[in-house]
């Protein structure tokens, strides 16, 4: 029987009277990479720290590998973790930083050395083993932190914004590398980030959080293609989904930039004035001020200028509808009569 590797049930954390995490439940399967995503202050890092045992829970249950660890301290949970700051021990060299956990757990010298050699090779740190962390670049420090997590050979690895201190280029490389290692080594991973691109590219499933609660759980394409709320729609994708007022004023309409075609003003259901043109090379992002709000459309090499009046159109299947009051997604059957086709 396949037991989920991590199971979180009705997790709650209060700091004073403030709810940092309220009623969060989810499971992570063995070998899966789940990304906790959300803006700062949404409770994603707190959730990770609760799972790690670095903060006591207010209520709820946490299971790791079928074992209830809710009351267990961090050292008893048998997990590994990579910190945003890397948390390398400044007084120890790279080798001793990586083998720190093996040493305190009393793993024999010979086995330590053997595992160290293997892991150092894996993350490309072999030439730097005798250096102190202060003598390493940001990317190398990141690798040491990663190596320390890998060498433990623990099935669950937690990552708290591990790439946020790296520059854009390195961030991309490490993203690919971490995902590759995670899949090759079959690690079960919970990865916290506020960067939706990181989440989209690395996750098997994404858990999007807002104000301490889960907004939507799903595979990246599910969050992208079927956002459960205007919050999800606005958080996922670059640019985020356009959300504008519907014609009847009852619902909100959501449509992605790449699904909008720009036409002659008089041949389209919606028209507006171009307020901004952003040239990105392959694409051009065109902002159009039309009734209901500003819409960003993706165009390719079209000659539209600021101040032009253009028409916008999209097909029915690409239109999302959200409740005006709650912002929750309305399923198509509830809005079968499409308003703007009849226009």
């Amino acid at each position: 029987m396949l037991v989920s590797q991590i199971a979180v049930e009705a997790l709650k954390k209060q700091f004073g009277t403030q709810n940092a995490v309220s009623d969060v439940s989810f499971t992570v399967d063995a070998g899966e990479c789940v990304v906790l995503l959300g803006p700062s202050g949404c409770g994603k890092s707190t959730t990770l720290r609760l799972i790690a045992g670095l903060e006591p829970t207010t209520s709820g249950r946490i299971q790791i590998a079928g074992r209830d660890v809710t009351g267990l301290s961090a050292s008893g949970r048998e997990i590994s973790m990579v910190f945003q700051s890397y948390a390398l021990f400044p007084h120890l060299d790279v080798a001793r930083n990586i083998t720190f956990g093996l040493e305190v757990r009393g793993v024999a010298r010979a086995e330590r050395d053997q595992r160290l050699a293997k892991v150092a090779e894996l993350v490309g740190l072999t030439p730097y083993l005798q250096r102190k962390p202060s003598q390493l670049s940001g990317g190398q420090r990141q690798r040491v932190a990663l190596a320390r997590a890998i060498i433990s050979e623990r099935s669950v690895c937690l990552m708290d914004e591990p790439l946020s201190n790296l520059d854009a280029k390195l961030r991309h490389d490490m993203r690919v590398e971490i995902r590759d290692l995670q899949q090759r080594l079959g690690m079960t991973m919970i990865y916290v980030t506020h960067d939706q691109v990181e989440a989209m590219t690395m996750a098997d499933r994404i858990i999007l959080m807002k104000n301490g609660s889960i907004e939507q759980i799903g595979m990246p394409h599910e969050l992208y293609d079927r956002p459960a709320s205007t919050f999800v729609a606005g958080f996922m994708g670059l640019p985020p989904m356009n959300v504008i007022a519907g014609d009847d004023g009852a619902d909100l309409i959501g449509v992605r930039a790449e699904h909008i075609t720009i036409r002659e003003a008089n041949s389209a259901p919606r028209a507006g004035v171009v307020t901004h043109v952003e040239y990105l090379g392959a694409d051009t992002m065109v902002s159009v001020d039309c009734p209901g709000g500003v819409v960003v459309a993706r165009a390719s090499g079209q000659a539209v200028k600021r101040g032009d009046t253009v028409g916008l159109a999209w097909s029915n299947e690409h239109e999302h509808r959200f409740d005006l009051a709650t912002g929750r997604r309305l399923e198509p059957r509830q809005t079968q009569v499409s308003h703007f086709v009849s226009n």
Binding site: A52, S80, F89
Partner: peptide, 10 residues
Amino acid sequence: LIEAARIEGA
């Protein structure tokens, strides 16, 4: 640093 050490089982 202390948290990392705890995670590592110290």
